[in-house]
């Protein structure tokens, strides 16, 4: 097993290189980008993010807590306001909605940190500081026999530098 790194300077060329490699059957890929790019994300075709499960759980917990908390408080300290029932739908919808957003947002950040920092952390030998500056990287994991073909594909895609990476 070998890893080949291609260095590019343009997000469109990076996405195009990824598409070309995937088209040629190399699907074990990774990429580095100094900016968020939908085009690269779509080219990588990783499927939906697992972080969204955290968001859903946060939203459901938030909306449930919002209603339960307000209903419990209303009956725990009952005061009639405006002649309305203690626990009513219209005002508590607002609390439910707000806690839905709050919990959804907080759990999204936590999920992002969890997946980014613990589950998917890759100390790749391919990374270089310029990938957080002005360069894009495309790493292809392939069999030793395919290295030459991958290098050729990367060069054809406009890579300014192509090299085999140790320890990726």
């Amino acid at each position: 097993m070998a890893s080949v790194l291609g260095v590019l300077t343009d997000p469109h060329a990076t996405a195009s290189a990824i598409r070309k490699l995937r088209g040629a059957g190399f699907t074990d890929l990774d990429s580095y980008s100094p900016i968020p790019s939908h085009e690269i994300e779509e080219a990588m075709d990783r499927g939906p993010s697992r972080v969204r499960t955290w968001t859903l759980i946060g939203c459901l917990v938030g909306v449930t807590l919002g209603f339960l908390m307000t209903i419990w408080m209303s009956y725990d300290y009952p005061i009639i306001v405006g002649g309305k029932p203690y626990a009513s739908i219209p005002p508590y919808t607002v609390i439910g909605f707000e806690l839905n957003i709050l919990f959804g947002g907080v759990l999204t950040v936590l999920g992002l940190m969890f997946h980014g920092m613990f589950l998917n952390r890759v100390d790749s030998g391919a990374y270089r500081p310029n990938f957080s500056g002005d360069q894009f990287g495309c790493v292809v994991n392939c069999g030793a026999n395919d290295v030459e073909r991958v290098e050729k594909l990367l060069r054809e895609s406009g890579c300014t530098e192509v090299r085999v990476v140790e320890g990726a």
């Binding site: 405006g82 309305k84 219209p90 005002p91 919808t93 607002v94």
Partner: peptide, 12 residues
């Protein structure tokens, strides 16, 4: 809509 509905409902 809800912003208006809520205060009208509560204020009565």
């Amino acid at each position: 809509f809800w912003s208006q509905y809520l205060v009208i409902w509560y204020g009565n």
